[in-house]
């Protein structure tokens, strides 16, 4: 018997492809945002409202993930934005390879911002790095205050958490302050945006933050390009 000590990350194969994706995104100055949530939290509606507010500033593309149908990609395409639908069949998440393959459907030289709407699921997508710049979680506030404590992984992985459907809070009897507190307990650095896609409340704050986040990332990218061309110059 021969024992090989690996101590290797189980997700290594996905991580390798995610790193390739990351390189492609960097080479094309393409900012990518991965939207995750349970089914029905309002990812697509948040995305539509975001696109309406942001499409004059950036050349957009959207990858949609669902088990079946092209309903979501059709909704995005109706806004005049190139959209590609991944239908996973039974797979409960998007992985780096699916994104790698989907990129072939876009003219990525002419894109500034790519949204990836993950499969609706409160657990699995958080485990799969796609090589994205930003992870955003959308949560439907009417589902209650306690979900961040019960299903902490995705909340923990997100840089920004959008608390959607706040117009329904009075009917649902959900305490927004308690919900925010629970989000911060599982992710102390989370940036929280309470929004309503019905009334429009909070959406501008979210979009302003997203824009500044993209610009910050671009500064880092051009910094990297300068370092590279500098290194090249001296080679």
């Amino acid at each position: 018997m021969h024992q090989v000590n690996l101590e290797t990350n189980i997700m290594e194969l996905n991580e390798e492809i995610a790193a390739e994706n990351k390189e492609i995104f960097l080479d094309h100055n393409l900012f990518t945002a991965n939207l995750m949530s349970a089914p029905g939290a309002g990812k697509t509606t948040v995305l539509e409202e975001t696109i309406r507010r942001i499409k004059k500033d950036y050349r957009l593309g959207v990858i949609e993930g669902d088990l079946m149908t092209t309903i979501d990609a059709d909704r995005i395409a109706a806004l005049g934005v190139p959209a590609f639908q991944i239908t996973t069949g039974t797979v409960c998440h998007l992985d780096a390879r699916m994104i790698h393959n989907a990129l072939k459907s876009f003219d990525i030289h002419n894109l500034d911002l790519l949204f990836i709407e993950n499969v609706g699921n409160l657990v699995c997508p958080a485990e799969f790095n796609l090589g994205e710049d930003l992870r955003v979680m959308v949560y439907s506030t009417v589902e209650g205050e306690e979900k961040p404590k019960k299903y902490p992984m995705m909340f923990h992985e997100a840089e920004a958490v959008i608390l959607n459907k706040i117009d329904l809070l009075p009917y649902a009897g959900v305490d927004l302050d308690q919900l925010k507190k629970n989000v911060l307990e599982v992710n102390p650095s989370a940036i929280i945006f309470p929004v309503s896609c019905r009334t429009g409340e909070g959406l501008d704050e979210w979009v302003d933050w997203l824009k500044s986040r993209i610009e910050k990332s671009r500064e880092t990218m051009s910094e990297r390009d300068r370092t590279r061309s500098h290194a090249h110059h001296h080679a």
């Binding site: 018997m1 021969h2 024992q3 090989v4 000590n5 690996l6 101590e7 290797t8 990350n9 189980i10 997700m11 485990e127």
Partner: peptide, 10 residues
């Protein structure tokens, strides 16, 4: 953690 610690083979 999410790790393959070791593999035994023969």
């Amino acid at each position: 953690e999410m790790q393959v610690e070791y593999v035994d083979m023969e």
